[in-house]
């Protein structure tokens, strides 16, 4: 076997995976998006741009997704960063593994069950009941955009914590000493050294969370009470309820395009911020 052949052999499984799991379904989606819905639903071959012309009918879903996905990512970041920082920088190495495991433990349970737990926590007999006991009446939490954000942050926190943790953990602690030695106060050190050097981790975490949020449907359905409508929910309805495969494909393909464009712009921005070429995203 030549070296070249061996290389091909090595990438073959990944290549096959890509073909079967990505290229093939995407091609279907692409072709379907130019078709029509059958009288009882499904797909009828055709070549029409009608489905794309119909996209404005899902404008609100796109708008909600494009607003809540970045917001949810930001909220997850704001909560995950201090947590990752504490774990990576402040925690005794002996406890790190244990605490990291605790961060993923919730992932061992289905998101469905965890979201149901939140329905009870945020529902009338959960936090609002506690608040009522303290004299704060009539607080509505469940089935609001707030509840969706809570669910998103909760659900995606580990995905954000881990890359940031890795970045902070790899950070050479002597750089922090050097900064302090050169007269920087702790906060100045954080701002000028720790934060910029954790950018790759932050970028990876944001990317992971953002991409998954763009396709999210479960959390808005469960914690948004059906009133917070993401593109993901529109897709579930189009494929599983109204069985409009053609329009569903057009929506799905548009979502994928938006994701690609957003990710590309984002990569650009990060690359500009990026400090070391060899550090570029651990993805």
């Amino acid at each position: 076997m030549t070296r070249r052949e061996r290389n091909w052999l090595l990438v073959a499984p990944a290549g096959a995976w890509f073909l079967v799991m990505l290229v093939l379904p995407l091609s279907f989606v692409f072709v379907f998006s130019f078709g029509e819905r059958g009288p009882a639903g499904g797909y009828v071959p055709a070549f029409t741009l009608e489905q794309y012309a119909n996209l404005p009918a899902r404008w609100t879903a796109f708008k909600n997704t494009m607003v809540l996905a970045p917001l949810g990512t930001l909220a997850a970041l704001l909560i995950a960063y201090p947590l990752a920082y504490q774990l990576a920088v402040r925690t005794d190495p002996r406890w790190k593994t244990l605490l990291l495991v605790l961060v993923i433990v919730p992932f061992w349970t289905s998101i469905l069950i965890r979201s149901y737990a939140w329905i009870f926590i945020l529902g009338g007999q959960g936090i609002p009941a506690l608040l009522a006991a303290l004299g704060i009446e009539d607080v509505r939490l469940i089935y609001t955009p707030f509840a969706v954000t809570v669910g998103i942050v909760y659900g995606y926190l580990p995905l954000m914590v881990f890359p940031i943790y890795v970045a902070l953990d790899r950070l050479d602690k002597r750089l922090l000493e050097a900064s302090s030695d050169l007269g920087a106060r702790p906060f100045a050190t954080f701002w000028q050294v720790t934060l910029p050097l954790s950018v790759p981790g932050v970028a990876t975490g944001c990317m992971l969370v953002f991409i998954l949020l763009m396709g999210e449907f479960l959390i808005p359905a469960l914690l948004g009470g059906g009133k917070v409508f993401f593109v993901g929910n529109a897709l579930v309805d189009l494929f599983l309820q109204s069985r409009n495969w053609a329009f569903g494909s057009a929506v799905a393909f548009t979502l994928i395009l938006i994701m690609l464009v957003t990710v590309a712009i984002y990569m650009r921005l990060i690359a500009r911020l990026q400090v070391r070429r060899d550090d570029v995203a651990i993805m």
Partner: peptide
């Protein structure tokens, strides 16, 4: 006294230059 308040500077064995 914390390091940043000391009138002392150090050249580190491993340089500890800021890569960014």
């Amino acid at each position: 006294l914390e390091p940043h308040r000391r009138p002392v500077n150090m050249v580190f064995q491993s340089y500890a230059l800021f890569p960014h």
